[in-house]
Design a protein around this nucleic acid. Structure first.
Lengths: 236, 236
DNA sequence: TAAAAAAATTGATTTTTATCAACGCAACAG
DNA sequence: CTGTTGCGTTGATAAAAATCAATTTTTTTA
């Protein structure tokens, strides 16, 4: 089931996948020179808000939550990055500390590229620069979007949007023929939606009773995405 | 009264002022070649979400709200841009339509730079490119911040933050010696905070009774910024 | 300057969301 | 296989925020 024409999924996903694709040999070599494969277990912290960045990470496999925690430790997930995306470049380009934290939502394999190599490649490569400018500008649109949704939409609407967006991300894993299964804790889902997990549970129950989704333990399958889009009340 | 050490104002302001400052002569000339001064009256639309971008705007004087409107016309203000900042570059760099609308909060004077000149200067100027990357990365941090505040903080806390941030922006206009006056409609203030204007009015009244602010009609003067910071409950 | 229009304010009420407390189920370790 | 522990679920209640309706104040305009 494609979302084309019925839901603007582009407004919810970053485009960092394309940044390293089909780069000229030389630039690609520079990035690879000292790269290091790193595995992270589910739940493991990759970097922490306020930390000094040492390099960037290319996600070879797995999903990563980018979030901010307030002083009580309550997390707000800003974005879920998926296989093929890059994380950690904002702090380096902004010449600043990490603006958010990153942790593995599932077992992950990342390629770490040291700051120096990334910046050297950048200095050499107009194409890399241009792609980053484009990616960052698109991210601005995505985050603006998120802000307006948080400020104006109800928890139920936000949950519907979160489910639609997550389904796209979990498509990657599903074996063809089998249904797409969203596999995320209620707590993390609540942190995406920006509410208490009890509210998430209650609305999921409502959706299940309306045959819009099916749940089995933590696993969620979407049965009627059109209904979800309707509930999301989002059409721009 | 400086906020240094007591409130992270940097996390709330973009840094696009620095982009055009002290550029090499040649690049600066390219940008100026076809620039055109344009005046906008208070309330006037500068560009509209979804529109095709023709160029960028340098704010010579005035404040501009960047916002998204939902289908009922309800506005959410994403950011208030001030004198010296640049707007409209996201759409051009992202090779996309405008992600948000821009309208004058007061009478404004802008310099319009056509897309072609901006892109030509960019292609010639590593320094301009680097500054844009830095600015956009910082904006990411600002918007992430905004998202976590919207998702986790109460209306009262958000209003306190909005007042602190707005006071900084309105500092520019005030004659030295005179107090800083925030001059914005309740409706726009509500659109910044992400609530109904009635709520804004009620909390302002509460702040006034606690001698934290003073109001005269739409005008707001901040009397006790430390109290506001305390109320904002924001310390990261 | 007076009338009209727009914006701000107030109070009452409803709806939404958060919080608290308890319970059940399922994964996991000994 | 069995306690333990974490996570998901449920119900009850409190708190926060939105909405509605009406009135006052401010600003604009004729």
């Amino acid at each position: 089931m494609s979302l084309t024409g019925i839901f603007p999924i582009d407004k919810w996903n970053f485009k960092s996948q394309s940044i390293f694709q089909h780069l000229p040999e030389e630039e690609y070599e520079m990035l690879c020179q000292n790269r290091q494969e790193q595995a992270f277990e589910k739940g493991e912290l990759i970097f922490k808000e306020g930390g000094i960045p040492a390099g960037i990470y290319f996600i070879k496999h797995g999903k990563i939550k980018k979030y901010k925690a307030d002083k009580d430790g309550k997390e707000q997930i800003i974005y879920v990055a998926n296989t093929g995306e890059i994380i950690g470049y904002h702090a380096i380009l902004g010449e600043d500390r990490y603006p958010d934290s990153a942790a593995a939502l599932e077992d992950c394999v990342l390629d770490f590229v040291p700051k120096e190599d990334f910046l050297a490649a950048l200095a050499q490569s107009p194409i890399l620069t241009q792609r980053l400018l484009k990616a960052l500008s698109h991210e601005f649109a995505v985050l603006s979007n998120t802000i307006s949704v948080f400020a104006q939409r109800s928890v139920k609407e936000r949950l519907a949007i979160a489910l639609i967006v997550l389904r796209e991300k979990y498509k990657d894993d599903h074996t063809s023929g089998a249904p797409v299964i969203i596999n995320i804790s209620r707590t993390d889902l609540a942190s995406i939606v920006g509410t208490a997990k009890e509210n998430v549970v209650r609305f999921l129950k409502e959706f299940k009773e309306a045959a819009i989704i099916n749940t089995q333990g933590r696993k969620i399958e979407i049965l009627d995405i059109r209904k979800l889009i309707e509930i999301s009340n989002y059409d721009c």
